[in-house]
Design a protein around this nucleic acid. Structure first.
Lengths: 339, 339
DNA sequence: ATAGATATTGAGAGCGCTCTCAAATTCTTG
DNA sequence: CAAGAATTTGAGAGCGCTCTCAATATCTAT
């Protein structure tokens, strides 16, 4: 199947290259009859404009980069990222953008690839997930004038200039902790995560909930974990020594690991120790026991990131957009409120 | 930061556009002194060739498409796909290719997007995952002359012309079933998956193992599930009515669901019913009980898909490549062979 | 030193599109 | 129905690169 050009389509339809271009790009001021004729030829031939030529002439590619900097192997086991990717992919398809994927497992990989993508003009905008506090990726791309939005909140230092879509982690943790407090638990532990801003916000919400009830925070009841099930298991094992009555885990995977640790110790959830998670992944509802957790709109986050980026690209230079999505507490058996 | 062009780099280095181009593309026959000078200028200016112009002139984009056609929501919950994506992303970075992601949740989405990507010249090659038997995506892109490799085996009808990277599902299932037989189980059930070729192969291997020991296959002990934990739970509940002694699940997620169903019924794994899974996901080792499972080299599959595609692109037209990777049985507690 | 071979460089013509600007056509209106 | 306004169309330049081909510089052997 030989690839046709604008010129050839014009020839067939009896018009010039320019006119065909206008039809394709939906410009006004074309006689309906001509537009019809050209559209027919395009449909019949299955013509598809060459994207490289288009990019070169218009200096925009309709490609968005999805960057996940300094991604740990483990992070991908958590269904959070797959869900974000799925949402972004879908939104891009919807708006005729192509998502290009950049996962960086090492700093070296990040260095090598990032300059290529940012400076080559291959990409119209970037969606960056902000996981680790240490990541320097965002500050690096700020030096280029490429539009981007971050998923998750940026560091305080640059929060004003950066567009982001985030969920209200602080409120979510506040809800979770309040729920446990209301149920009468007092020795409430936390299976926290470090090095990520979401974790810092969840920690803050947790502490605020306790403070608002004038309860002290027992630092010895806070264990740090990564986002994996295994991490939750290990952290909970350590925490068990100090006899918590309930724990708030920073993710459902961690919560599941915690429940397993509790069971392995011969104890029961929630009878002996109540557990609340964060995310509301599909597995949460069918866990044993079903998990009380903070539901965050992951899919919506991805969709909004794309839509925000499109908006920024269109109106650039544009003021930074800040979107924070609400979360809700989903009460199930693991916290002891229902069976 | 103003974007430079080849011409300008040449000006600075005191050579022509052509020479700079040669340096960048590693052509021979450039005086070392000149090459050095040009490279210095490139490094100092941080020059990056415009990828659209490059694509247009050379008619290759160094972009690969990663297509997952007719993807069910649930499929992504299984860590299989995320792992494949991660492997492909990494291999692409390594070889200076950019992976573009195309996930299709509906046939409509597939139709709309697929023509755009194959016919626009935006993409040099395609990696396609073959999940459902019904998918028509592969037969559609065969009509274009775009290089592609499939992950998973194609349908018998077109297997000769299509390049693929697959794991030996049949051998894996054979190993799993043989293991259970050797342990003395006779009423061996299967939590199978339908509509996918991998599932068909696993089913075949399972049957072969029984046949080789002259054991009959009890069709009533075969339940169909999707690839999710919840699916495994439901299928196992149904299967429990028929009193199997052991089950072979087509994925670890299914196996985990089965174990939960068994526990909910007040029975124990493996004491009452042995379970073997397939995949060896990270969670398998830390499951309760740890899961005996067939380990498939998922990451390697992704890497090889990229490398094979690069090879095909380079030598096109090329004969189809067929790669089938070995699997191994990982014996843990859930099958009752160890504690 | 010099012809001939070889290595190195530059000029020029595209790649297929967009976009501006001027030409051609059609529509108004007195 | 002509003149001016408004609409519709086409020609041409250029986006920044690659690649061929011819020109120039360098090397070799006599």
């Amino acid at each position: 199947m030989k690839r046709l050009t604008l010129e050839e389509i014009g020839q067939i339809a009896g018009v010039s290259r320019s006119t065909v271009s206008r039809v394709i790009n939906g410009h006004p001021n074309i006689r309906p009859a001509v537009r019809q004729r050209v559209e027919d030829v395009i449909r019949q031939t299955g013509y598809q404009p060459n994207s490289a030529a288009r990019s070169l002439a218009s200096s925009q590619s309709r490609v968005f980069g999805l960057v996940m900097p300094s991604l740990m192997q483990s992070a991908f086991a958590d269904p959070y990222y797959p869900m974000v990717i799925q949402a972004i992919s879908h939104a891009c398809n919807q708006h005729d953008y192509t998502p290009a994927l950049f996962l960086f497992q090492t700093l070296e990989e990040e260095e090598k690839t990032s300059q290529r993508i940012v400076a080559s003009g291959m990409i119209d905008g970037l969606i960056v997930t902000a996981d680790t506090i240490e990541s320097t990726f965002v500050s690096k791309i700020q030096q280029y004038d490429i539009p981007f939005v971050q998923i998750g909140r940026p560091l305080q230092s640059s929060i004003a200039e950066i567009s982001y879509v985030d969920v209200d982690n602080e409120a979510g943790a506040y809800l979770a902790a309040s729920h446990l407090i209301q149920l009468g638990y007092r020795r409430i532990g936390q299976l926290a995560t470090a090095h990520n801003i979401a974790g810092a916000h969840r920690d803050a919400g947790f502490r605020q909930a306790l403070a608002d009830r004038s309860l002290p925070v027992d630092e010895s009841l806070i264990e740090v974990s990564d986002f994996s099930e295994a991490g939750g298991y290990d952290a909970m094992r350590a925490l068990l020594e100090r006899g918590p009555e309930a724990v708030f885990a920073h993710s459902d995977a961690i919560a599941l690991g915690a429940i397993r640790a509790i069971r392995d110790r011969g104890l029961k959830t929630p009878n002996d120790i109540a557990v609340v998670g964060f995310d509301d992944m599909p597995l949460a509802a069918s866990a044993d026991p079903p998990l009380t957790t903070v539901r965050q709109p992951i899919y919506r986050t991805g969709t909004l990131a794309v839509e925000t980026l499109i908006d920024i690209v269109k109106t650039s230079p544009a003021p930074a957009r800040h979107i924070v999505l609400p979360v809700e507490l989903v009460i199930r058996a693991s916290s002891g409120a229902v069976n």
